[in-house]
Design a protein around this nucleic acid. Structure first.
Length: 466
RNA sequence: GUCCCCAUCGUCUAGUGGCCUAGGACACCAGCCUCUCACGUUGGUAACACGGGUUCAAAUCCCGUUGGGGACGCCA
């Protein structure tokens, strides 16, 4: 049997981090089994669904590297098929017309609330003669829920979950305007698309019982369900915008790498022994339902940052340089890209995301004169520096070779002759050449900048006034 | 409120009755490396929610309590 999974978001907002993880798990499970992964847009809510959201979801999945098989299924387009199933159930006597008004339902809800019970439709139209139907009122179609016994769902994550059937009510399948409800649409689509494994958020666990009623009434086999616990914010409360319920594009803009986010999301709620750094190929090989944890997990930016730093260090220098050049507005400047590529080994271990990387790399391609941070400025106007810098420039102007090791040797000799520590020479150089007090190793910086540029920057530093 | 789910270091987790004086990772603290900052490296602090059982033996099984989460729509 071929494994078929799906990711079925409703396009009412961006692809948030929880959805991204659900998509990842479904994708991984399908790829692991050499199966099929479908994307289905659940756009039956015509008011809240937007094209922009559909766009955001598609872009987000592409950015994350989660490719789906076949055409995207748009649920709304299948509404006639959903209605057909509802009518089939009606004809088979497994569903019925209900003429309850919204007001009646409201009363029922209030009464239930007052009695401390969950809202449950009382089935008042379940067994009434169709001849009693009032005229001028469009009915909904409700399913006949089982009255006794219990429904058991064997969940891939939660195990055996059971609920008494008296908890279930005759839910609506088809609205009075003839459109299908979510419960109906999902079941019909999952069946028609031959979905074998449904992996979705925990919030759907109780829905599963209701969906089972439809499968049973139609005589269809239900897919295998796995409900993964939700992601919470750092404070344990529901994930809010403030702590990470952002669209994946927000993570992209913050400078996170798709590979890092994939690894992070994988480990959030799934484990494979002590393994932490897991490549996507490895994840496909290892992913299983049994590794999914049962308790909700909290989103932790610190760990994401750490992972992102790791993947940055692993990344190709040219790729990184291109990305940095792009954010620095130098994408079409081949010389800058080349220079940044050479500088990347020293740069990439010092940033935890692409944004920081670009900020730290800026000095390399900035045009003179540089802007100085306060501390760098202070170093350059200090008497010691003022006394030392001209002679240092002289020494370097006379340098025969311009390689980091040689430049460092020169500085060491210079420091020794002046009776100061190497740092007393290196920090002024750093301030003058990078405009900052922190940078990659300064002699490496000098080499990459080149003799001409380096000496001009040093000359600029001479002009600085306190 | 009713129903359902969950519960190991601050966080993500390993653990499926003896290998547990509970392992790893992030974060944190200290040392090393060192021209700065990182990276790297060495070490450290830190957890089985609580109470009852079952068993020769329980983080692991059962019951209860507490705490968290989810679902209770002609939304998805």
């Amino acid at each position: 049997m071929t494994v078929v999974t799906r990711f079925a978001p409703s396009p009412t907002g961006f692809l948030h981090i929880g959805g991204a993880r659900t998509a990842l798990f479904n994708w991984l499970y399908a790829r692991h089994h050499g199966g099929i992964f479908h994307l289905r847009i659940e756009d039956t809510d015509r008011v809240r669904s937007t094209d922009a959201a559909i766009e955001a979801i598609i872009d987000g999945l592409k950015w994350l590297g989660l490719d789906w098989d076949g055409e995207i299924v748009y649920q709304f387009a299948r509404a006639p098929r959903h209605a057909e199933v509802a009518n089939q159930l009606l004809a088979a006597g497994k569903a019925y017309h209900c003429y309850c008004s919204p007001e009646e339902l409201d009363e029922m809800r209030k009464a239930a609330q007052a009695a401390g019970k969950p809202m449950k439709y009382d089935g008042r139209w379940r067994d009434r003669d169709p001849k009693d139907a009032p005229t001028g009122i469009k009915p909904v179609i409700r399913i006949k829920a089982p009255l006794a016994g219990e429904t058991i769902v064997v969940d891939g994550v939660q195990g055996e979950v059971r609920v008494g059937n008296e908890q279930l009510d005759d839910m609506i399948l088809l609205r009075s305007d003839g459109t299908p409800t979510y419960m109906l649409s999902v079941v019909v689509d999952d069946h028609d698309m031959n979905i074998t494994h449904v992996i979705r958020g925990d919030d759907h666990l109780t829905n599963t019982f209701r969906q089972r009623m439809i499968y049973d009434s139609m005589g269809w086999d239900a897919p295998h369900f796995s409900h993964i616990p939700l992601i919470h914010g750092p404070d344990g409360a529901k994930l809010s915008k403030r702590h990470g319920a952002l669209g994946v594009e927000a993570y992209r803009d913050m400078g996170y790498l798709p590979a890092a986010l994939r690894n992070y999301l994988l480990r959030l709620g799934w484990g494979h022994g002590d393994d932490e750094i897991i490549s996507t190929a490895q994840a496909i090989e290892w992913f299983d339902l049994g590794g999914i944890g049962r308790s909700p997990s909290r989103f932790d930016f610190a760990k994401l940052d750490n992972l992102n730093g790791h993947y940055m260090r692993q990344s190709d220098d040219t790729d990184l340089a291109k990305a940095v050049a792009d954010t620095l507005g130098k994408a079409n400047d081949a010389a800058s890209v080349a220079l940044l590529t050479r500088a990347m080994p020293g740069l990439k271990s010092r940033a935890k995301n692409l944004k920081e990387l670009a900020e730290n790399a800026g000095f390399y391609v900035q045009s003179r004169p540089l802007a100085f941070v306060e501390k760098a400025q202070a170093i350059l106007v200090a008497p010691e520096t003022v006394a030392l810098l001209p002679k240092l420039i002289e020494t370097y102007t006379a340098a025969a070779t311009w390689q980091a090791a040689a430049l460092e040797e020169t500085a060491r000799g210079f420091a020794e002759a002046a009776g100061v520590k190497l740092g007393a020479v290196a920090q002024p150089l750093r301030a003058a050449l990078t405009g900052s007090t922190q940078s990659p190793p300064i002699f490496e910086v000098m080499e990459i900048l080149g003799k001409g540029e380096a000496l001009m920057r040093l000359g600029d530093a001479l002009q600085i006034k306190g």
